[in-house]
Design a protein around this nucleic acid. Structure first.
Length: 435
RNA sequence: GACCCCUUCGUCUAGUGGCCUAGGACUCCAGGUUUUCAUCCUGGCAACACGGGUUCGAGUCCCGUAGGGGUCGCCA
């Protein structure tokens, strides 16, 4: 039997991070087993299921590298089939009509639970059982004539030939209902696996109010799709050895449901950030540049491409996320950069710094050639002849030209900035803070 | 409240009765390299929820307690 898994989100404009993790595990299982991974768009909420919302969903999947087999099934196209099935259940006496609660809402269709104990083997949690007395009949068609989730979901899974349902923990109770439905419908029961929830820093389930609840939030914060994919994969699963940073192929190869955790996992932004940094490092140069240009554009900054590329090369190894780029390159692109107050106070406003900066500036003005090598050589000589320490010379120089006390190597930084900017900035710094 | 499930360092995890004086990773701290900043390297802090069994031997099996989560909709 060929394995078929699915991702069945409702396109509401944003994909919840927990749902996306479920999608990842479904994708991984299908790819590992050499099976298929299909998409079903549960678009029955007409209000929110706009074309843009569907676009967002597809973008998010693409960004994480989750490719889908075949055409997606849109649930709205299935309503007739759902209703026919309900009718059939009614005829067979497996469901009945009732004005539930007697509220005068009209009659809805209610599925009759078989009245026997139920049990299934969860791919992650193991055997799950539920006594007959703890299961109640449930509505499958509303009194307004629309099918309820349970019916639609099961019918569509049958339609799409789903062999393995991998979903969130919050569905375990539903599974007992769904199994009864499969049996009533005469369909083969798929394997069920329930993933533990992921929780936020407070140890609570992610809610929309937490921020970082949606896939888009992570993208906006400058994380890479591949990094988030790798991280999410490790949140509730491990290959069994000490590997953490793995290629997609390695993950697919070693993935298994049995190795999934059955307790909730907490998202650790620090570790995600670290992992993202590792991925940034491995990014091909062209990809990095493209990302950086985009970030610049979004920030409304313009730059000569050749000049910008030199800067990117310099900051490349130091950024952990895409959003780190702009603050790090900002001072290369504008004379309006801000000075870090603490840096000014601690390193600039000290005795002798005016003299030092003035001398350094003069050395720079008199160099035949102004580039990385020449500034390097000149400053080394100056440090030696002046008897000042390196820190006493380089730190103020850095702050004078960049406003901050940390950043890329100083000499390439100076070289790229060029003499004109460097000297002008040093003059300005001396005037502004040291007179 | 009822039903179901879960419980190893702060966090993600390894561990399937002896290899565990519990391993890795992130974070944090301390040294070192870099005569700037960052990186990097080395080291360190830090956990089997608790109580009973079973066993020659338990993080690993069983029972109980506590704590946590999920579900109890004509939502999905």
């Amino acid at each position: 039997m060929r394995v078929r898994t699915r991702f069945a989100p409702s396109p509401t404009g944003n994909v919840h991070i927990g749902n996306m993790r479920a999608a990842i595990y479904n994708w991984l299982y299908a790819r590992h087993m050499g099976g298929e991974f299909v998409l079903r768009v549960e678009d029955t909420d007409i209000e929110r299921s706009t074309p843009e919302a569907i676009r967002t969903l597809l973008d998010a999947m693409d960004w994480l590298g989750l490719d889908v087999d075949g055409e997606p099934l849109y649930q709205t196209t299935r309503q007739k089939a759902h209703l026919e099935a309900a009718e059939m259940l009614l005829e067979k006496g497996l469901a009945y009509k009732e004005d539930k609660g007697g509220k005068g809402q009209g009659e809805c269709v209610i599925f009759r639970m078989p009245g026997t104990d139920s049990s299934f083997v969860d791919g992650i949690k193991g055997r799950m059982t539920k006594k007959a007395e703890n299961m109640q009949d449930f509505v499958i068609v509303r009194s307004n004539g629309t099918p309820v989730f349970h019916l639609a979901n099961v019918l569509d899974d049958i339609e799409q030939g789903i062999t393995h349902v991998i979903r969130g923990d919050d569905h375990v109770e539903n599974t007992f209902r769904h199994i009864a439905l499969y049996e009533a419908l005469g369909a083969e029961i798929p394997n069920f696996s329930h993933l533990p929830m992921i929780v936020n820093k407070q140890g609570k389930p992610y809610s929309k109010r937490d921020g970082d609840a949606f896939v888009g939030d992570f993208r906006e914060k400058g994380f890479l799709g591949d990094a988030l994919f790798n991280y999410l994969t490790l949140l509730g699963w491990s290959p069994g050895d000490d590997r953490e940073i793995m290629t997609r192929e390695e993950i697919i190869e070693s993935f298994s449901l049995e190795r999934c955790q059955s307790s909730a996992a907490q998202v650790d932004m620090k570790k995600l950030t670290w992992m993202n940094g590792e991925y940034m490092l491995k990014l091909p140069l062209d990809d990095f540049n493209a990302l950086a240009f985009h970030a610049l554009e979004d920030a409304g900054l313009e730059a000569d491409p050749a000049y910008a590329k030199q800067i990117f090369k310099l900051v490349r190894e130091r950024v952990k996320t895409v959003t780190d780029i702009v603050p790090m390159v900002g001072y290369f692109l504008t004379e309006e950069f801000e000075y870090d107050e603490k840096a000014v106070r601690k390193k600039l406003q000290k005795d002798g710094v005016v003299d030092t900066l003035t001398q350094v500036k003069e050395i720079f003005e008199n160099l035949d050639v102004f580039d990385e090598a020449s500034t390097d050589k000149a400053l080394h000589e100056f440090v030696e002849s002046s008897g000042l320490g390196f820190g006493a010379v380089m730190a103020p120089t850095r702050i004078a030209v960049s406003g901050v006390q940390s950043g890329p190597d100083l000499f390439p930084l100076l070289g790229i900035l060029g003499r004109e900017r460097v000297v002008a900035r040093m003059n300005r710094t001396i005037e502004q803070f040291l007179n």
